[in-house]
């Protein structure tokens, strides 16, 4: 399986017999990608490495920055809040997204409409969407006005700048990342399997549980991973609509950078990056998931 994901350059090196003269035609894909690769190296990879190095060499070579994290209450609380928010947001996306993905795949006439509904916010800036949520959830926002009009509450309740607001807004923003991989997996299920299940005596609910759900698990895994990893690094939305005590890891990093506390910010960044990579690495080892992740990202 691993050879599938090897970049062209690696595949080239592995498959070329040592004795054969170098075939320039096989280097063409690499040459075509070269400008971008150089660009990424200079403007992305090198700065990231330089920044991460600051966590161990500022001012001298030391692992002290990491060691102090073990008794750093602020860090631990922040890390916990970040993980907690990510889990809740991911679950929310899954519960709300799965039925939408099914609707998207099942309905021939409604599919383009549903797809536009999903993708329209997807194409809008996160900043704009977070502002929209501020308007909606504010003291005199649409949600409060509606609840009061319905007589469910007497005076405006505090939604904006709470943990709930962060979760609502993040679920909304991350839903497409959950729906699209699941829809992709559902679309790949051979319709004759569903007919076969029905013909063999399975009610629609049993067919869902025994055939559709297990066969869509690859999409669920991919969507969950994608949503979770993106949620880990969320900054704008929690900063704008979240509660004052709901500091996520990315907010803490921003704060430290503001205070020119580069070494600490770099340490936190390294932790965030390591967490995301660790989750991806573990998930790829799960049977079927790595494969599904790649197919859904095509």
């Amino acid at each position: 399986m691993s050879e599938v994901v090897q970049p062209a350059s690696l595949a080239l090196a592995v498959s070329r017999p040592k004795t054969a003269p170098f075939d320039w035609r096989r280097a063409v894909p690499l040459l075509l990608a070269a400008p971008l690769l150089i660009y990424m190296l200079v403007f992305y990879a090198l700065p990231v490495v330089a920044m991460l190095l600051r966590s161990v060499n500022d001012p001298t070579w030391t692992l002290a920055n990491y060691a102090t994290l073990f008794d750093d209450v602020v860090f631990q609380k922040t890390f916990w809040i970040t993980l907690n928010t990510s889990v809740i947001v991911t679950l929310g996306c899954l519960i709300l997204g799965y039925p939408v993905a099914m609707g998207l795949v099942r309905s021939k006439t409604m599919a383009p409409f549903i797809l536009v509904i999903i993708l329209l916010p997807f194409w809008t800036s996160v900043l704009v969407r977070s502002y929209a949520w501020m308007v909606l959830l504010g003291r005199h926002g649409l949600v409060n006005e509606a609840l009061m009009a319905l007589g469910m509450i007497d005076r405006p309740i505090r939604i904006l700048n709470t943990t709930l607001a962060t979760q609502i807004a993040m679920i909304h923003i991350l839903l497409p990342y959950m729906i699209l991989p699941i829809a992709n997996a559902l679309r790949q299920i051979d319709p004759s399997l569903i007919r076969a299940a029905s013909g063999l005596g399975s009610t629609p609910f049993m067919t869902f549980r025994q055939v559709i759900l297990p066969l869509s698990m690859s999409g669920v895994a991919a969507g969950t991973l994608l949503t979770f990893v993106l949620a880990l690094g969320f900054y704008i939305t929690p900063a704008m609509v979240g509660g004052p005590r709901d500091i996520t890891l990315s907010m803490l990093i921003a704060q430290q950078v503001d205070q020119l506390n580069w070494a600490y910010a770099a340490t936190l960044s390294a932790i965030l990056l390591a967490t995301a990579l660790a989750i991806l690495a573990v998930a790829r080892k799960l049977p079927g998931v790595g494969n599904a992740f790649r197919t859904s990202m095509r």
């Binding site: 004759s192 005596g201 629609p204 055939v211």
Partner: peptide, 20 residues
């Protein structure tokens, strides 16, 4: 009557075996 209540055996053209 829905198919799942008809109690009919069926073999499909592409076999439709559950891959999982």
């Amino acid at each position: 009557m829905p198919p799942y209540r008809r109690n009919i055996g069926m073999v499909f053209q592409n076999y439709a075996l559950f891959p999982h």
